[in-house]
């Protein structure tokens, strides 16, 4: 790829090492949302922030190559449908949004019924919202200076 895009070599190398760990931390926060502080809201945005870090370090072209823009609405739709499916499946337990799965033992990862699955569904929504923010910055602002540069100055 083009070496001039993005920041210097040191930043790129450190980013390449760190991105995986930050992504792992976000997934940890999502999965442990019912035990410790955090949850789908915070963890989803942390996952989205890894892509922003990637964008800032490597430039726009690299992330547009890795994450096609058409895949983000798909992710968001999957998240929303998953949340709605959890709600409808609550009719097995008697009513809408019933917590009908086995509850397990407290302070363990597999506990609290449908709450972890709802956390994952919400995290998908948040990731897609954060990526929408990135592409708002990338795609929408890309045309502006070239178009209005002559008119404004």
């Amino acid at each position: 790829m083009d070496n001039n895009a993005g920041m210097s070599l040191i930043v790129k190398t450190v980013t390449r090492i760190l991105v995986g760990f930050i992504l792992l931390y976000g997934i940890y926060i999502v999965l442990h949302g019912h035990i410790s502080p955090g949850g789908g809201f915070a963890g989803g945005f942390i996952i989205a922030l890894t892509y922003i870090l990637f964008m800032l370090a490597f430039g726009k072209e690299e992330i547009l190559k890795r994450v096609p823009q058409s895949r983000i609405p798909l992710l968001e739709s999957i998240g929303a449908l998953m949340f709605l499916t959890i709600a409808v499946l609550g009719f097995f337990g008697g009513y809408f949004f019933a917590n009908w799965l086995p509850k397990g033992i407290s302070f363990k990862l597999f506990s609290a019924g449908t709450i972890p699955i709802s956390n994952i569904a919400l995290a998908m929504l948040e990731v897609s919202l954060g990526l929408f923010g990135i592409f708002l910055v990338l795609v929408l602002l890309k045309f502006t200076p070239s178009k209005n540069g002559g008119k404004e100055n």
């Binding site: 923010g133 708002l136 929408l140």
Partner: peptide, 17 residues
């Protein structure tokens, strides 16, 4: 709040264009 901010910024950029 984040969603509202993103939407407002998008509208502002369109107005600027």
């Amino acid at each position: 709040g984040l969603a509202i901010t993103a939407l407002l910024v998008a509208i502002a950029i369109r107005i600027y264009e």
